[in-house]
Design a protein around this nucleic acid. Structure first.
Lengths: 128, 128
DNA sequence: GCTTGACCTTCCCGTAGCTGGAGCCTTTAG
DNA sequence: CTAAAGGCTCCAGCTACGGGAAGGTCAAGC
């Protein structure tokens, strides 16, 4: 299967699939003409990566997940640990964003927002 | 004032300050020896940027904020609009992260997390 | 006067995770 | 036979810097 079909089958752009090969995630066979030739196992790995990425895992984390995916004797605890770490990361990001949002919306609330130049937002940024 | 002092005064690394000059945000005068020489107005701009960045504004947004900061005849409504757009961005990110978190923690909850290899997280990623 | 060390300069490379494009080759349809 | 569509590799660029090399400058101590 050529790369475009593989792209359609995995919902990934061809460029991204080539990139994943370049960084050693999925290495398909090559046809006689040099074209990439994706087998079912390759597609499974690509879909696996696509799903993991869409859940927010980094490429490095995907690498770890893939090696667990490949390991018949994995311990589900190891997978769970990775997922929990990710949940922690997400929690930290949410907390950070919430804090930013609170600060910003306080500033917004104090800005009358008309055509006059005086503005508490600018004043705060300027360190008033 | 040399760059290191400016860095201490603005809580920004010298590298970052040079970068801000390179992209046209703050251009200090130069001393006879070629050293950057920061005046009070430069420091104000740098602190302004530092605060805006720490509130989550992108460099492009900082550029817009700076031009409003420079504009004596600005309308506070324009500033408020930028801030509100940022709040919207943050809200969207939080929502996305919350959704990821929900999916992930559901998966985590279904994984027994022991030394056996069967794992609902891996199965989900594999598209089971 | 000389050395040493702290500072300054520019320049280039690397980060994450791709995306776009150039230039060229192969396959397929009409 | 031609033209379009797809494939290939390689290079550049995006954000917002950080690290480090090679070299110039300045202040302190001997």
């Amino acid at each position: 299967m050529n790369i475009k079909k593989a792209a359609q089958a995995t919902d990934l752009p061809p460029k991204t699939i080539r990139y994943y090969e370049e960084i050693g995630l999925v290495a398909p066979a090559r046809s006689a003409n040099g074209y990439r030739d994706y087998c079912e196992a390759d597609l499974h790995r690509l879909r696996f990566i696509q799903r993991a990425r869409s859940l927010g895992f980094s490429i490095q984390q995907c690498r770890s997940l893939l090696s667990l995916y490949d390991d018949e004797h994995r311990a589900s605890a190891d997978v769970k640990a990775l997922a929990l770490e990710k949940v922690g990361e997400i929690d930290r990001k949410i907390e950070e964003l919430r804090s930013l949002r609170a600060t910003l919306s306080t500033l917004v609330a104090h800005c009358h927002g008309d055509d006059r130049p005086d503005c508490p937002i600018i004043e705060d940024l300027a360190g008033a």
